[in-house]
Structure formats: C-alpha cells, structure tokens
C-alpha cells in the first residue's frame, strides 16, 4: 500500500479518516475528563484535610 492509497482509501478517505479522527477525539476527551476530575478531587480532599486536622 502506498501513502496515496492510504490517504484516499479508494475515494472514501474523507469519510474513513473523519470517523477515525472523531473516535480518537472522543477517547481523548474521556481520558482528559478522568484526569481533570482526579486533580479536582485531590484538591477538594487536600482542602478538606487542611481544615479538619
């Protein structure tokens, strides 16, 4: 397979690559959400413990 064939995907390149890109984007969003949530929870906990101890 040559690079041109991979990009064009037999004429369906735009559809195929858009579908795969959105998939990776959604996976990235989920991972980002989980990591951001962890940071926020840690902050909340640190705040809570600093007030109680």
């Amino acid at each position: 397979m040559h690079l041109n064939e991979i990009i064009s995907m037999g004429g369906y390149g735009l559809y195929v690559w858009t579908a795969y890109s959105i998939t990776l984007l959604v996976f990235g969003m989920n991972l980002f959400t989980a990591i951001r949530e962890k940071k926020r929870v840690k902050k909340t906990l640190r705040h809570y413990f600093s007030q109680t101890s």
Binding site: G10, G11, Y12, Y15, V16
Partner: peptide, 10 residues
C-alpha cells in the same frame, strides 16, 4: 470498497 473500514470504529 475501503469505505467499509468505518465498521471498525462504528
């Protein structure tokens, strides 16, 4: 053709 490859994410 190659359009069916969307099946692998759909």
């Amino acid at each position: 053709g190659d359009g069916f490859r969307i099946i692998y994410v759909h």
